[in-house]
Write a protein that binds this DNA or RNA. Sequence first.
RNA 1: GGGGAGAUUCCCGAGUGGUCAAAGGGGGCAGACUGUAAAUCUGUUGGCUUUCGCCUUCGAAGGUUCAAAUCCUUCUCUCCCCA
Length: 410
Amino acid sequence: MNRALEVLQERGFVQQCTDFEGLSRLMDEGPVTFYIGVDPTGPSLHIGHMVPFFALRHLRDAGHVGIALLGGGTARIGDPSGKTEMRKLISYEEIDENTRRFIKQLDRFVGFDGVHAFTANNKDWLADLNYIEFLREIGRHFSVNRMLSFEAYKQRMEAGLSFIEFNYQLLQSYDFLQLYRRHNCRLQIGGDDQWGNIVAGIELIRRVEGAECYGLTFPLVTTSDGKKMGKTEKGALFLDPNMTSPYDFFQYFRDVSDSDVERFLLMFTFLPSEECRRLGSLKDAELNQAKERLAWEVTALIHGKEEADKALAAARAAFRGDGDAAQLPTIAIKRARLEAGIGVLDLFVEAGLVPSKNEARRLVQQGGASVNGQKVENEKQVFTIAALQDGAMMLRAGKKRVARVISKDN
RNA sequence: GGGGAGAUUCCCGAGUGGUCAAAGGGGGCAGACUGUAAAUCUGUUGGCUUUCGCCUUCGAAGGUUCAAAUCCUUCUCUCCCCA
């Protein structure tokens, strides 16, 4: 088998392939141009988007050429695949802004040099499509009967599927055709929920151009307890540091289940496979070293080594006491307020550890709140500036959430 | 266009005039046990005050009533059947 494909397979990236042998042969012959599509439907990419881009880097390292296709056009429609409900439509301005942000985030991770990796935007060929011409040239190749047999649509037959979403597949297929024509793109990779769309694109190219293209999908990454990977209480694990702090990002990986460690090391880091397997096979408490490594590696890839170091120092300060507490999430409260004294409940709310005073009260009543390592017994307790030790107060809510409070002038 | 069903607190889903901040489950949170894991058990789960209590919530807006998530009117959206 082709070496690059083999790497993807041994790292757990391969879910389905339209023609494994054929693709392998093609890749042996020389550099293959492939693409990944992302629709800029939100303000930031999240970790779930990144799986195909990790694959992109593996493939690029093997000499192949990757295109990141931003769905500036398709985002106007909304992909029903994998969704149980209709997606709300987003404004064009919002899509353009999202696109800009996505490209920036991806560039940081992939490094678009214009030769081995570059971006494209399907807005360029979709935005001004002529409906009638499109139907005559492209639409006639699609069988509604066949489309309805796809799993993605079956799931929506109950909940409802509007025509705008039903069209999505034609547009994605058209994307593949365009990229084939413009860049001789022969392979599309993506999450397994894209299987139907990918296959449809391949069939379109076969009919229109008589050429054989390929599709490869990755497993939908879930945690061992079956949840979508990267989902937190606060939502997805975003790459934007303003939406998910590097510390929270780090902690997500630091806290993965034992059974997920090896799998995540293989997919979300570039450590050699043997090293991933060695780390993953550590036993009991030793496995914590592997988790720490995983968290550091992924954070470094996304936010840079400096942020990864800071997050690591903060985590150690919070859980082992030997790191750097200054790196913990910190909030500043006016000196005057601290001098006057603040009730615990308000303190925890202001520190962002709980969303309301009722929850703060519950936290205290259930024994989950502590200040400077001392459990808060009374919800009426008041803290003043005297509680600052070395200029800071350490608040804990439960075992995992920590905040550091400092004072500020005015 | 005609007919039918439906929209409930984060999700699913009960509730059909007061006893409803609203059953049950899921999820979340906290505690115990631990390794910042999993599993398990317990508690908790709108906001403000915590003493009574007050406020907001059951698709939207009106109305009936001492009193509505529950009744009426209009509207919006979804699903199903027929054309």
